[in-house]
Amino acid sequence: MRGILGLLLLFALLPFLPLGAWGAFLLDVGLFILLFTALALSWDLVARTGQLSLAHGAFFGLGAYGAGLMVPHLGTLPALLLGSLLAGAGALLLGSVTLRLHGLYFAIASLAFSEVLRTMALKLPFTGGPIGLPVPPPFGGGWPLASYYLAFAVLLLAVALSLWAERSSFRLAQAATRQSEAVARVLGVRVVRVKLLSLLLGSLVAGLAGGVYAMKALFLNPYEAFSLGRAVEALVIPIFGGLYSTLGPLLGGVVLVGLEQALRLWIQEGYLVVYGALLILAILFLPRGLLGLLGGRRG
């Protein structure tokens, strides 16, 4: 808990730290850490029910496009909210059809879902198609730190949801569903409902993250917004940091996204090779992620 609060405090104060010439760059890195960590937490929320989601890239994209299309008409906050609700609607649609499926089958269905949405973003008449969609910055660009603090707010929400799920009896329902669905059911746990609620909460957060991303990137295209790479990043971060926890994805996000940005700066072209090698080492030697180093238990 102290670790979580410490990290959050660091992010809250980051814009005011004396970072000199590096300030602007570090603030950008910080923003991406905030967004992708929130996305990772929202993925972990679903993973806690034993479902491997490859649709988080799609929820992110739904939020991004939803917010991007609405922000010129409605303003920043309503647009973010609508983008998030759009992602939530997508999750309910996907979940109500597929959540009776187990692990691998759900993963494949969620992958298909994400491909369908990308195709729709390419073909629909109002999305800008393959050319892309320009998005105005938050609050008309009047406040330079707006997107950073919006990202911070998304992470706060993700952490709050994750902590709630970890500390309420919902955690038991999630863990039981993950470990043995049949036993959970005969004990009276409504497993489909537990899975659907987890997916809905996760998608709302992922959609918000996507919306803030759109306002930061100022430009969306379907390949970028619905990329499978983002869905993979959403699951790599919790695995690297420590699954089924709040601190794990938080640590994983700070280290991995930070590392990715740093490597891109130092090594440039071949940075993904080093990044991949580091991931392999982590999986080989840290089977429980960074949290395993700290000696936490999971269950």
């Binding site: 038991l172 329902a173 863990a175 039981a176 049949a182 004990l187 009276g188 238990r297 999971r298 269950g299």
Partner: peptide, 19 residues
């Protein structure tokens, strides 16, 4: 038995009363 081995005794029991 099908207990949840990584949960405590108390947590296993609480699961039985989840509803």
């Amino acid at each position: 038995r099908q207990l949840f081995p990584l949960m405590s005794v108390e947590e296993n029991l609480r699961l039985g009363a989840a509803f």
